[in-house]
């Protein structure tokens, strides 16, 4: 069966012919994923560092919960957000269901636990090394958070990439909350799901190859940058 092969021609025609539409899908995917991961990073990095350093009752419980949430099934997350954002749900008045923002929220929810959990681990390890020095300088645990986040920056890039991986590969949640509306909430992964259901397996596979190439490019860039940076400021 010739369908088993991924014809290079179909990838090419994807990229060239009918280009506006396809480019839009790629841009939307990137926009949703990068926004979600950026926001999750802005919230998750300080939160993870705080969880690593600040002692409070119930801390262990929260750590276990966050670690569990890393495996949160995307469909469940999607369903929960769907029920929240639906017109009949508590946040229905915002009119966010079936919009890119809803997909960002879904990915944010999925990515946040990963970033918090991995950040906590990284920062906790670094703190054992820095604790005496920071205390000697008169900086308490809270005041040490910016220092630790900055000095762990190259490990944290990997953390963000892990989040990016989860977000960009995700389809279950964004399909539910985004609705896979052509030209509006259709992303790379939901397109793949759609083309598969249309039986156009070569096109679906070609889209998959494009998605993986994009992921590869982003990862290579991030890896390269953090490598160069790490060399610049000493191996971590």
């Amino acid at each position: 069966m010739q369908q088993d092969a991924i014809p290079i021609s179909s990838i090419l025609s994807l990229l060239t012919g009918d280009g506006g539409n396809f480019l839009g899908i790629i841009l939307l995917s990137l926009q949703v994923t990068i926004t979600a991961v950026t926001c999750a990073g802005l919230v998750g990095l300080p939160l993870g560092a705080g969880l690593a350093l600040v002692r409070f009752p119930g801390r262990t419980v929260i750590i276990v919960l966050v670690n569990t949430m890393m495996g949160f099934p995307p469909v469940v997350a999607g369903l929960a957000i769907f029920l929240l954002l639906s017109r009949s749900g508590p946040l229905g008045d915002l009119g966010l269901l079936f919009t890119p923002k809803a997909m960002m929220i879904a990915q944010f929810v999925l990515v946040l636990p990963i970033i918090v959990a991995l950040t906590r681990q990284t920062i906790e390890d670094l703190w054992t090394e820095y604790q005496d020095h920071m205390t000697s300088l008169g900086a308490g645990r809270l005041r040490s958070i910016p220092t630790l986040l900055w000095d762990a920056r190259f490990s944290l890039v990997t953390t963000l990439l892990a989040g990016l991986g989860r977000a960009s590969a995700e389809v279950g949640a964004i399909l539910i909350v985004g609705g896979n509306i052509a030209g509006f909430t259709r992303t790379m992964t939901t397109s793949i799901a759609l083309e598969t259901s249309k039986g156009d397996l070569p096109l679906a596979m070609a889209l998959g190859v494009v998605l993986m190439s994009l992921t590869l490019i982003i990862n290579s860039l991030a890896f390269g940058i953090s490598r160069v940076g790490a060399r610049f400021s000493g191996k971590s």
Binding site: E129, Y130, D132, H133, M134, S136, L137, G138, A139, R143, T147, W150, D151, A152, R153, F154, S233, G234, S236
Partner: peptide
């Protein structure tokens, strides 16, 4: 300290960080 704590920064930044603190 016996094992000096070196921040993952330049030598100068190690000074300025301590002074900032």
């Amino acid at each position: 300290f016996q094992k000096p704590v070196m921040l993952r920064r330049s030598v100068r930044a190690n000074f300025t960080h301590a002074l900032a603190m």
